[in-house]
Amino acid sequence: MHLAYPAVLAVLLFCVGLYGVLARRNAILVLMSVELMLNAVNLNLVAFDVWLRDTVHAGQALTLFTITIAAAEIGLGLAIVLLVFRHRGSSDVDRLTGLAEPHGGPGAPHAPDASDATPTPAADDEKAEASA
């Protein structure tokens, strides 16, 4: 088989996943797009392992490891998303601006954002006093 077929398919799947990560708003859909990107990498690993006829099968072993790490990642990611949903009542990634710059931003009216933003000047004051 021509090696360009799996390579091009992996590239296109990766870019589809890239579009999904950038364009989706729901955090779980972002996780699905991350899975697509990881699968594109797996396809590349398998194709190059078969092409190179590796005696230690590094590509297939790495594919198994990637699949396992992806499973762990999706478990932890979903736990984080559920925690965020329980605290904020929403899993939209563009509303989670608690770590954003204090001025402006669409997440300003949220109460947790305000409580997150308030300790920052105090910490700056402490830093200024320490440096003085």
Partner: peptide, 13 residues
């Protein structure tokens, strides 16, 4: 379901 920067994401992809 899609955010406002969909066109930017399409361009990048």
């Amino acid at each position: 379901a899609d955010s406002e920067n969909r066109l930017v994401a399409l361009g990048v992809a």
